[in-house]
């Protein structure tokens, strides 16, 4: 007796072409716009502070806080992979701080900032300083909803940092060239970094500073034009 063979034939299936137009970066941009609207509704101004690891972002924030805490009700968001070291430093100045630990991500994004915004009382704030994760590459790509973007670069990083990272400097409204007290020892000129920045972004305001010695803070504040936001 012969069995009738049952053959399961491989089904080739159907092939579909699907138009998606699904934007990958837009999700972050939409959320950043929502953050900005939320801040506007509460009359809060926000500044995104970017720069390399060890460039002096936290020191600059401490100086700005010290100068402006009588004028504005300030909160500081500190972005880092881990630890609350920066948040602890800023908290000593008597302002509200939220540490945003990204875990593994090398930048803050609008979602993380949206979460941090839920952790503060927006009715009691005028200004939020957001310290991004130390990195001169990715933070530029991810808007947070801030009104101004500031990049800190220090002379101890060498003379080529600006030209090597044009994209983040294109994003900047203000560029702070820090650690000028070490410029001579490093053989790096402020004017060179300033010229490099202007070549990439003629609209960015370039300010020299020595944050550890609290020099240049007033010029940074002036360049940020916080009152005209």
């Amino acid at each position: 007796m012969r069995h009738k063979e049952k053959v399961v034939k491989h089904d080739e299936g159907k092939v579909f072409d699907i138009e998606l137009e699904e934007s990958i970066l837009k999700a972050n941009e939409d959320l950043a716009a929502e953050n900005q609207q939320l801040l506007r509704r509460h009359g809060i101004k926000a500044i995104d502070i970017m720069g390399s690891i060890g460039s002096g972002k936290t020191s600059l924030i401490e100086n700005i806080v010290q100068r402006l805490k009588e004028r504005y009700r300030i909160a500081v968001f500190n972005g880092d992979l881990t630890t609350t070291i920066d948040a602890d430093r800023v908290a000593k100045h008597g302002v509200e701080v939220v540490q945003i630990n990204t875990g593994k991500e090398c930048h803050l994004d609008a979602n993380l900032v949206a979460k941090a915004l839920k952790d503060v009382n927006l009715r009691q704030l005028d200004l939020i300083l957001i310290e991004n994760v130390g990195n001169l590459i990715c933070p530029g790509e991810f808007k947070l909803g801030a009104d101004r973007r500031l990049v800190v670069v220090s002379v101890t990083e060498g003379p080529y940092m600006v030209l090597k990272h044009p994209f983040i400097f294109m994003e900047a409204d203000v560029v702070v060239i820090n650690k000028l007290d070490h410029a001579e020892a490093m053989g790096v000129e402020f004017e060179k970094l300033q010229r490099d920045t202007e070549k990439i972004n003629p609209r960015a305001k370039v300010v020299g500073a020595s944050c550890r010695n609290n020099i240049g803070t007033d010029r940074v504040i002036e360049a940020l034009q916080i009152d005209s936001i």
Binding site: E19, E22, I24, K26, F167, M170, K199, I200, P202
Partner: peptide, 26 residues
């Protein structure tokens, strides 16, 4: 390196395209 300097007047330009990343189709 890229620059935001306007080639015509030397002022600052705005980027209007080239910053997107999207899935067109599958």
């Amino acid at each position: 390196f890229p620059t935001l300097e306007c080639p015509r007047c030397g002022g600052g330009v705005e980027i209007v395209a080239g910053r997107g990343c999207f899935i067109k189709s599958v």
